[in-house]
């Protein structure tokens, strides 16, 4: 620290002796502006996802619809496995694998122990609500889903339409949501509340039909 202060003092003295030192009051003004900008960014960053959602909901024409996507896929090339939730403006690929942390940092992870949409049973999709390095996780807006909302899943080029039947908050120790089900079910799993992930948000949806 002493070395650093000495270094700064030396730099100031050299600049003064060369006659290129701007007025100290001007330097202070610049420093103040830089400090304000940095701190404004730090304060505003957590609100950016909500602002983005508000803007997209009110001004964008890109709101994804299940039927539109299904139509696109009928005329398009084979599509990757993906999940789409129109009410949260989510359209993301479903990732597979067993390296939990790596995959969850990339997107939505299908829990390997669960079923798949083409089979009867419980398909479990897990995603981050937020990450510290990237505030908006894939399930950041999952709390905006309501009972009755539609969820679309593309699995091996077949589109499945689910309807949300239940939304609940459970403690992390509650593993009953991992149980298999007799009916084709989709379970979405993430953390809640935002920024203080002490519980888990579980959205359950039942298969309506194939698109």
């Amino acid at each position: 620290m002493v070395t650093f202060v000495t270094f700064i003092s030396l730099v100031v003295k050299v600049l003064v002796s060369l006659g290129v030192m701007p007025k100290l009051s001007r330097i202070n003004s610049c420093l103040l502006v830089i400090i304000i900008v940095i701190n404004a960014y730090i304060i505003a960053a957590p609100f950016a996802p909500t602002t983005w959602f508000w803007w997209q909901s009110h001004h964008s024409q890109q709101r994804t619809q299940l039927d539109q996507k299904a139509h696109r896929q009928k005329v398009a090339k084979p599509q990757p496995n993906s999940v789409i939730i129109p009410s949260t403006l989510l359209d993301q690929p479903i990732l597979e694998g067993r390296d939990t942390y790596t995959i969850l940092n990339k997107g939505i992870w299908r829990w390997p122990g669960s079923s798949t949409p083409d089979k009867n049973g419980n398909t479990i999709l897990i995603g981050h609500r937020f990450t510290y390095t990237n505030p908006r996780g894939v399930f950041y807006f999952l709390n905006k889903v309501s009972v009755g909302d539609e969820i679309g899943v593309t699995w091996q080029n077949i589109n499945y339409r689910y309807k949300v039947s239940n939304i609940k908050v459970v403690p992390p120790s509650d593993t009953s949501i991992l149980n298999n089900t007799p009916r084709p079910t989709l379970t979405l799993y993430t953390c809640t509340p935002l920024w203080w992930p002490k519980d888990r948000l579980v959205v359950t949806a039942q298969l309506e039909n194939n698109l």
Partner: peptide, 17 residues
Amino acid sequence: TKFWVLLVLLFASLALL
């Protein structure tokens, strides 16, 4: 004095960032 105070604040802000 202002300069040194602002310099400390700047580095504190950068550390927080």
